[in-house]
Design a protein around this nucleic acid. Structure first.
Lengths: 213, 213
DNA sequence: TACGTTTTCCTACACATGTAGGGTAATCTT
DNA sequence: AAGATTACCCTACATGTGTAGGAAAACGTA
């Protein structure tokens, strides 16, 4: 009997790692071929070479598996972004490269991300991703504000709850990403970064000229 | 046998209107009590005084019913917003009031919107709403640009595809709304409007002082 | 009112979901 | 290497899903 469901990240037991990997791999493969809503637990288990019963020992449904598979990728992505130090030499270039890395990572697993962020995707996952991005943005803004890279709003001390801009930014990023993925990634990641950077810049009133000076 | 599924808005047949209304009402009532994922087709049909078979004559699943119920409300909302004419006397006040009306409408049907925009909501509906809002924003921006209320970006002619900012804005609005609803609407609509307006303003580089002068 | 049309409802069926208990085999620990 | 632990798998079951065909009732129209 399985007693604990603590969703241990990289569990110690080899069997668990094997089935986790097999299920994730099977889902990613299946999601490239058909709609997520058409994929049954039996399908995933079959393609993973795992019993349907075993699936339920680890995940409550297909969405939860997708969430787990995607969460790891998103975490890797966020962690890999070149965090702007207290005083980067070229913060604009850093930010643009971060954006480009973001879009490039989306394009790399476009099938999965499109399935999960699109119309027949998982609202649970979108919500989860939005929270994670919002948290990252929140931290980033605090760092930048502490470093002096970010201008105060209108000269007055910040009186807006920090999380509203963070959620605003996260939602915007997800909106652009979802739309881009759904259109089949017509523009290359670099161009998407160049297109969206001015929007973020304007949002936080970054004085680009002052930063470059 | 039911032949057509053209989702006739306000169909001619009295029976159809009755069942549509009954199903929508039943769903709205049920969604206030329990999670959307826990609501079965049989539940909705039962509470609506309608056969389960009849449900499937009109909607493919609960999400589609929710989408239909919510779409009408969203359309009403967008249509009721005070569209800023070519040259409003006070565009800032107009925009803030539009935002306030938006949040107020969300709060009015908080149960339904929270269920549909939240973690166990409908990705299909979120996508649909984002498209509608993006289209509305797109039109609004074009109008404002034609009226001269909107400053050109950085003094150069607009070279950014208009739909990227539109999707950006729509996603941001949905992000803020979803977060606000999920927290139980702690701040009143007026305050939310006041909090988010500066963000939109900064996004489109509206020169507030110039507009007020 | 009488007719053709459309909706509603019933029944039935194949399949998917999620849960439970327990046997077996792999893994971890000592 | 031996024992304790635990993951895996099998079976079974109650419930929900989505589809199909056809009878009865309500509707719009002439």
């Amino acid at each position: 009997m399985v007693t604990t469901r603590e969703s241990n990240t990289s569990s110690g037991d080899r069997r668990v790692r094997r089935t986790h990997a097999a299920l994730a791999s099977a889902l990613i493969q299946l999601v490239e071929e058909q709609d997520l809503s058409r994929i049954s637990v039996a399908d995933v288990a079959e393609h993973a070479g795992v019993s349907r019963s075993t699936f339920y020992d680890h995940y409550r449904d297909v969405h939860e598996l997708a969430e787990a598979a995607c969460t790891a990728m998103i975490d890797d992505l966020i962690g890999s972004l070149p965090a702007p130090g207290p005083h980067s030499a070229d913060p604009v270039r850093d930010a643009t490269q971060s954006l480009e890395a973001f879009f490039a990572s989306l394009a790399e697993h476009a099938g999965l991300y499109r399935a999960l962020l699109g119309p027949q995707g998982s609202a649970r996952l979108v919500d989860h991703i939005r929270r994670r991005i919002a948290a990252a943005v929140y931290d980033l803004v605090r760092q930048a504000a502490a470093g002096g890279d970010l201008l105060e709003r209108g000269g007055s001390p910040v009186d807006i709850p920090h999380d509203v801009p963070a959620v605003f930014t996260a939602g915007a990023l997800i909106g652009v990403a979802a739309d881009w993925l759904q259109r089949g990634c017509p523009l290359p990641p670099a161009e998407m970064a160049a297109l969206t950077w001015p929007l973020f810049s304007a949002l936080y009133r970054l004085d680009v000229d002052a930063l470059l000076r």
